[in-house]
Design a protein around this nucleic acid. Structure first.
Lengths: 124, 124
DNA sequence: ACAACATATGAACAAATGCTCATATGTCTT
DNA sequence: AAGACATATGAGCATTTGTTCATATGTTGT
């Protein structure tokens, strides 16, 4: 092994394997910012729970109040409320108050699109 | 409170609040099967991690071997391999062997569509 | 067959997540 | 103002998840 090659490998800093620097540099330049990718993962994390998925699907059918969602899912009002908060914070749902009751609904169409896209994938 | 009303509320089985049965029945009939919703959540769970998101985005740019991904992400080869397994099991990536090296690439276009849709949402 | 390389896998552990229980906040009725 | 009702919130706990470490599997060259 000649000197240049040895030096290059040492420059890889102990990382596994042969030289990938070319491919890595090329791809690396095209990747979105670290923060963006993090936010993206956060966004998808909201869909990564069946309770929240159920809520979103339910709201896709109709605006609903917390009590109705609670009854529909057959779980605690507290559990539902906690999940609604998560959905609210991610701007996936919006709400309006009518007396004591609070009605939730989908915030935009992205939600529907994403759900549909996911469905397409798993139905194969 | 008359008898019919009292009986109806008792039929709600202690669940919180006033009567939602009408809305619940209507929405309930439209909801996908429990299993489907579960699978859907599982599917989205794959996107709910920044490491996997990075891998997917990298593979969107180019087919890559494990070593290159490892170097690109600056993490352990083991960690990358574990995540690739998850992606593989969800049919989001495919791979081909070339000697000792294994090259990974995206399995279909849904991945790209989903990522793009997610991006659209967070960039607002 | 053996050593070197590329990738995969299992166990263990820390961090994150979702639920429950108790209680708080906000609204209406009387 | 007080009680009933609808929803929200915080702490605690059990489960899940992602990483690391050590090691296994598979491939190539000698």
């Amino acid at each position: 092994m000649d000197d240049t090659k040895r030096l290059m490998e040492e420059a890889l800093d102990g990382e596994a394997g042969h030289d990938h620097t070319e491919a890595v540099r090329r791809v690396s330049a095209q990747l979105p910012e670290e923060d963006i990718l993090y936010d993206l993962a956060d966004f998808f994390r909201i869909f990564a729970d069946s309770t929240r998925i159920k809520i979103l699907y339910a709201l896709y059918e109709s605006e609903l109040c917390v009590g109705a969602i609670t009854q529909l899912l057959g779980m605690t009002q507290s559990a539902v409320s906690h999940q609604l908060r998560a959905l609210k914070q991610s701007k996936l749902v919006k709400y309006r108050r009518e007396g004591k009751t609070i009605f939730y609904s989908l915030a935009d169409e992205h939600v529907v699109t994403i759900l549909a896209q996911g469905m397409e994938h798993i139905e194969e």
